[in-house]
Design a binder for these strands. Structure first.
Length: 483
RNA sequence: GCGGGAGUAACUCAGUGGUAGAGUCACGGCCUUCCAAGCCGUUGGUCGCGAGUUCGAAUCUCGUCUCCCGCUCCA
């Protein structure tokens, strides 16, 4: 179980340059956060790890990057214009909030009667529009109305035919996209868990009707395993099967991957919240964006210029593919990896020290190269040369000599750097016995240890001595393949 | 949007009407052969913001913003 609450992570993130409150010097802006120097590296690594797993390591997914501004008609036919702007009423008595068009069906949570029975206490309906409106072009007029996309999925659906045609893809195959989406959430909060501007990592996987249940199961396992592979603990990650009444009207099934974001909450059930939703969206999306009558979904698309129906080039069979949608939040994933990486370990003085046990692939910095003391120019120069060499060979490395060696280690632990390389007097071939005599150096040792350095492991704090020439291979083995 | 709580240094906080503080962190110098060493020095705060009361407000009053907790909402 995670041992840290989000508040602790918020402090660490600000202090160490991962995530800051946005627009802070002007008092901030609700629910917006800026990723700082280490945060952008971490989040980029999360996104790259995802992209590698779903695009590069498979043979059945194409990537794309769609525009945030889209033709308003996309949202008309996707259903968002209708369902994303609900008129809501508040009850002054029970403090409940209800959809104005469903009052007849809803029960008052306090008095166990129909909400309409509370009529005297209800406020006038107010429109809650969850899509950000903007205008395209400088003249404000109705025709120029546009929305910031509330999900990335739609740019995949409207490009379905382009990608089939240009990449010779046959169903089953998928399209992956990482990008920003915007929702005017009624209640944002919990740090980067729920924000109005956020980044999604979505796959729309197209398959033949009848094979959809199997593909759905496949993706639930794929995605679950991805989080485990990059460091989430099994006790903090679970599959939640949505109940029929929770499903969107077009969805046949949806399983959420939930993470224990709130371990401090007393009610165990409330500790969990959604990290990724994996839905079976049936053939709704490609149907509704297709020209003409869509009987199954009870609408007529008068604006689309194309049919997104798929023709199997082998069998000539025509159908609307079913869509399996693994939809993950990049910000939520980043937060989950931070929470699960957080640990404390007593230092030599007994005081707890923070160690961020991030998966090496996700760590913002892979290697810190440190001189044992900074008042010896030979140590400094050698350390800087090693840093430069590692960096030139694709290993994200930094050099630091601003404080004493113990504090340098502690700092790197706190930001999750997996390895520290230390250049000491033995590296220069001028080592001598330690005062406490522990590993007694012999007369020949200084020469034998020349051009070797120590490599310290973040998690065990153990050090091994290896030749400088072997560093690249050493790290290549332990840091894993580049993302 | 409702109810409750909270905003003081980069972080954690003290400060109940009278000169804005502590610890940690950060930075510089000296020193240092390995896990937040030591000594010396330094930076850093419109006390969330705006009004009001007062000779005087971090402190009292009102408004407002933000965050947290609980509701509510979440295609």
């Amino acid at each position: 179980m995670a041992t840290v609450d989000i508040g602790t992570i918020v402090s660490l993130c600000k202090r160490r340059g991962f995530i800051f409150p946005a627009s802070e010097i002007y008092g901030g802006l609700g629910s917006t956060w800026d990723y700082g120097p280490l945060g952008v590296e971490l989040k980029n690594n999360v996104k790259r790890a995802w992209w590698k797993a779903v695009v590069y390591d498979r043979n059945d997914i194409e990537g794309m990057d769609g525009a945030i501004l889209m033709n308003r008609l996309v949202w008309k036919y996707s259903g968002h214009e209708a369902t994303f702007s609900d008129p809501l009423v508040d009850c002054r008595e029970c403090k409940g909030r209800f959809r104005a068009d469903k009052l007849d069906e809803l029960d008052c949570p306090r008095y166990k009667r129909k909400v309409t029975a509370c009529h005297a206490h209800l406020t006038e309906p107010r429109a809650f529009n969850l899509m950000f409106k903007t205008q395209v072009g400088p003249v404000e007029e109705e025709a120029a109305l546009a929305y910031l996309r509330p999900e990335t999925a739609q740019s995949i659906f409207v490009n379905f035919k382009n990608i089939v045609d240009s990449r010779w893809r046959k169903v089953p195959f998928g399209i992956a996209q990482i990008g920003k989406a915007f929702r005017n959430e009624i209640v944002p909060g919990n740090f980067t868990f729920r924000t109005r501007e956020f980044e999604q990592m979505e796959i729309e996987f197209f398959c033949k009707p009848g094979t959809d249940a199997d593909w759905h199961a496949h993706w639930i396992e794929e995605r679950y395993n991805w989080y485990i592979r990059y460091g989430l603990r099994r006790e903090n990650l679970r599959r939640y099967v949505q109940k029929p009444e929770e499903l969107a009207h077009y969805a046949r099934a949806c399983t959420d991957l939930q993470y224990r974001f709130f371990p401090e909450r007393a009610d165990e059930e409330k500790q969990w919240d959604e990290l990724e939703g994996i839905a079976n969206r049936t053939d709704y999306d490609l149907s509704v964006h297709s020209k003409g009558k869509q009987e199954k979904w009870g609408l007529h698309n008068e604006h689309s210029t194309q049919s997104l129906m798929y023709r199997d080039p082998v069998t000539n069979e025509k159908f609307f593919p079913y869509v399996i949608e693994p939809s993950a939040g990049a910000d939520r994933a980043t937060l989950a990896f931070l929470l699960d990486a957080y640990s404390e370990k007593p230092g030599a003085d007994g005081e707890p020290r923070v160690v961020l046990k991030l998966h090496p692939a996700l760590a913002p910095i892979k290697v810190a190269v440190l001189p044992l003391a900074r008042n010896k120019s030979e140590l400094v120069e050698k350390a800087q040369a090693i840093k430069a060499d590692l960096q030139q060979h694709g290993i994200r490395a930094v050099y630091d000599d601003t404080v004493a060696i113990g504090k340098l280690y502690a700092r790197q632990d706190e930001i999750g750097t997996p390895f520290c390389v230390t250049v000491d007097y033995d590296t220069l071939g001028i080592g001598k016995a330690k005062p406490d005599g522990a590993p007694e150096a012999t007369a020949s040792a200084p020469v034998a240890l020349k051009d070797t350095v120590t490599v310290r492991d973040r998690d065990t704090w153990e050090q091994v001595r290896i030749p400088i020439t072997g560093l690249r291979e050493f790290f290549a083995e332990r840091l894993g393949p580049a993302l």
